[in-house]
């Protein structure tokens, strides 16, 4: 259980979610901020269903009753260079 990874970007485990709820983070938005799930390069596109299910299980409520976290633009990651009107240099 403790090694069940829910968020591949930041290695957030099922145990991390359980501990967050036990500490008093009981809203998906604050669980996001505490565990950093949803905050990696995938921005929740990969992990959201798994993390929300784990939160729902810990809270003993259906996923449909949970308020989702605030979505932030951009919808997909964008390179800084093109936004700045310059070519992106990927040589780094």
């Amino acid at each position: 259980m403790s090694k069940t990874i829910l968020c591949l970007c930041h290695d957030v485990t099922a145990e991390d979610v359980r501990r967050a709820v036990a500490e008093g983070y009981t809203h998906p938005e604050t669980i996001k901020r505490y565990t950093s799930a949803f905050m990696g390069p995938c921005q929740g596109r990969w992990c959201a269903d798994l993390v929300m299910e784990a939160i729902a299980e810990e809270l003993g409520r259906p996923v449909s009753e949970l308020q989702p976290t605030s979505g932030r633009p951009p919808a997909y990651p964008v390179r800084m260079g093109p936004l700045a009107g310059r070519p992106s240099d990927e040589s780094e």
Partner: peptide, 14 residues
Amino acid sequence: VQLFPRIAGACLIR
């Protein structure tokens, strides 16, 4: 990108 030219290739995520 002007201050740190190398981040031109970095993805902005939020």
